[in-house]
Design a protein around this nucleic acid. Structure first.
Length: 505
RNA sequence: GUCUUGUUAGCUCAGCUGGUAGAGCACGUCACUUUUAAUGAUGUGGCCGUUGGUUCGAAUCCAACACAGGACACCA
């Protein structure tokens, strides 16, 4: 059972005692009239006063008890609200007759949420403190909090019971404040640029827009399977066909793949599509976007990330094939020769499927020798057409695409390209992907989406589009190294319960 | 999916080459009206992740399983 623990039983008993005394331990309302941060701010002058106190000021604050130091007829407590931590001084003789001994000392403890009224003063040790004359319990906590000094460090508890993590760890709260700011700023940035925020389906008849395994669900009324979306791309481009010229969507994608420090089955991205623009315009807007974020988040352009230091004033560009030799130190003579790449990789004991085409092999080389070395922001441009089924071919070299991916701290942060708007080419690319799937080489190849090809057949203006992984971006900006630390409720395996008795028949 | 490390009180952790459980905090009781992880005294609290095996005897050794962390593989 849930509440059989002895400490919880003790606390339930205290809640019952409060009820018997006519005090509801789950109060209906609070008369709080300021936050702790405002209290600290407004009363920062108290220490300069002659008595170090001002009994004419009166504030009511509320918060959770984090520390309880009881010293006979007086106590010091620390209470915390979202804005900060405040010491309060509670003395017997300042409270109604009997309150201190029968209610306060006996039935109020660490973890409870209380409301206190009183005046500000500064203690002998120099700490701004609220001198309490009224105290009311707002919410009784019947489960005890983790230990006051070490807090909760067990990652499993922190993720499964995130509320405990948030109660105990102020820096975790700060990370999620930053995450919220990033999303809010992103929205504002694109709105200010004239983009329209749209919502496209989360349940797709065809899992398109990326190469990934989807989650499958069943729509009972229609009797059909639906896929949780792996990307919103094909719907957003349909909107460009429809005449919207700049759209964006910030939302979740779902991919039925492994979980690790940089992958969660559901993750947040922004995708935006911009008509009459090319990938070169996207490079410009991406730089502006980062500048905007750093400005508003007040981050230094020389940003530490673990052992690394990322210089956000130094965005560079380099074509993918060139990066193989220049950054990856792969011999220049082999990078455009399929057989030589296979031989080279074999020599380095890297397994490759012999049926891979040149573009895929160049992608392999890039992943192996270049990606991890891209610390400062780097736009890798001109991806091979074979690994870019939705991107426009380059005018000078049709084997390449007008595409880039942005890498920072050795990780992909964004993927962008001038969109393929030739419907016949798009159809052929889908067919090529289907072949790759059937020949067994690539079980995550892109699905055929005929309806999308038909949409393109009505004409999509030249358009550039980009996706940015918000979770990884937040990781970068908050110096976190696991995606779980920037997701409030990361995916976890269920904990095994005792076997259900009714299923034993 | 593979490898690897971990799982002991509400929390943070000890527990050696097997002899049947320890600390700090928290909690209970007592003292204490300016403390800073308050202090002093005293007490309660354990399916030692689960299941099996070895053994006279298992928190400890072995195996399987579950969950978690890390690394690799795949992906964003």
């Amino acid at each position: 059972m849930a509440f059989e623990n002895q400490y919880i039983q003790q606390r339930i008993e205290k809640a019952n005692q409060l009820k018997e005394l006519g005090i509801n331990p789950y109060a209906n309302n609070s008369d709080r009239n300021t936050t702790i941060a405002k209290f600290m701010n407004v009363n920062s002058d108290i220490g300069t006063l002659e008595d170090k106190r001002d009994e004419n000021r009166h504030y009511i604050v509320a918060g959770r008890i984090k520390l309880f130091r009881l010293m006979g007829k007086a106590s010091f407590l620390k209470i915390e609200d979202e804005s900060g931590l405040l010491q309060i001084y509670v003395a017997r003789d300042n409270l109604p007759e009997g309150f201190y001994n029968t209610i306060f000392k006996k039935n109020i403890e660490v973890g409870d949420i209380i409301e206190v009224g009183g005046y500000p003063f500064v203690t002998n040790k120099g700490e701004l403190t609220l001198h309490v004359s009224d105290l009311k319990i707002l919410t009784k906590a019947i489960s005890p909090l983790p230990e006051k000094f070490h807090g909760v460090t067990d990652k499993e508890i922190r993720y499964r019971q995130r509320y405990l993590d948030l109660i105990m760890n102020a820096e975790v709260r700060k990370t999620f404040h930053t995450r919220s700011r990033v999303i809010s700023l992103t929205r504002r940035f694109f709105e200010d640029k004239g983009f329209l925020e749209v919502e496209t389906p989360m349940m797709h008849p065809i899992a398109g827009g990326a190469n990934a395994k989807p989650f499958v669900t069943l729509h009972n009324a229609l009797g059909v399977e639906r896929y949780l979306r792996i990307a919103p791309e094909l719907y957003l481009k349909r909107l460009i066909v429809g005449g919207f010229e700049a759209v964006f969507e910030i939302n979740r994608n779902f991919r039925n793949e492994g979980m690790d420090a940089t992958h969660n089955p559901e993750f947040t991205s922004i995708e935006f599509y911009w008509a009459y623009k090319t990938y070169k315009d996207l490079i410009v807007i991406t730089k502006e976007y980062f500048e905007y974020l750093f400005d508003h988040l007040e981050l230094p352009t020389l940003l530490p990330y673990g052992d690394l230091e990322v210089d956000f004033s130094k965005f560079t560009e380099i074509p993918l094939v060139e990066s193989l030799s220049v950054i990856g130190n792969v011999p220049e003579a082999i990078v455009n020769d399929k057989e030589k790449i296979i031989a080279y990789l074999k020599e380095k004991h890297i397994d490759v499927n012999a049926s891979m085409n040149l573009g895929q092999l160049q992608g392999e080389l890039f992943d192996e020798y270049v990606e991890g070395k891209l610390i400062n922001p780097t736009f890798i441009t001109h991806y091979p057409v074979e690994i870019s089924p939705l991107a426009r071919r380059n005018d000078e070299n049709p084997e390449l695409t007008d595409r880039f991916e942005l890498f920072i701290a050795g990780r992909e942060i964004a993927n962008a390209f001038s969109e393929l708007n030739d419907p016949v080419d798009q159809l052929e690319r889908f067919e090529g992907q289907m072949q790759a799937k059937e020949s067994g080489g690539d079980d995550e190849a892109h699905e055929m989406d005929e309806d999308f090809v038909i949409a393109l057949s009505y004409g999509m203006a030249p358009t550039a589009g980009q996706g940015i992984g918000i979770d990884r971006l937040v990781m970068l900006l908050t110096n976190e190294h696991s995606i779980r630390d920037v997701l409030l409720f990361p995916a976890m395996k269920p904990q095994t319960q005792e076997t259900k008795p009714e299923e034993e028949e």
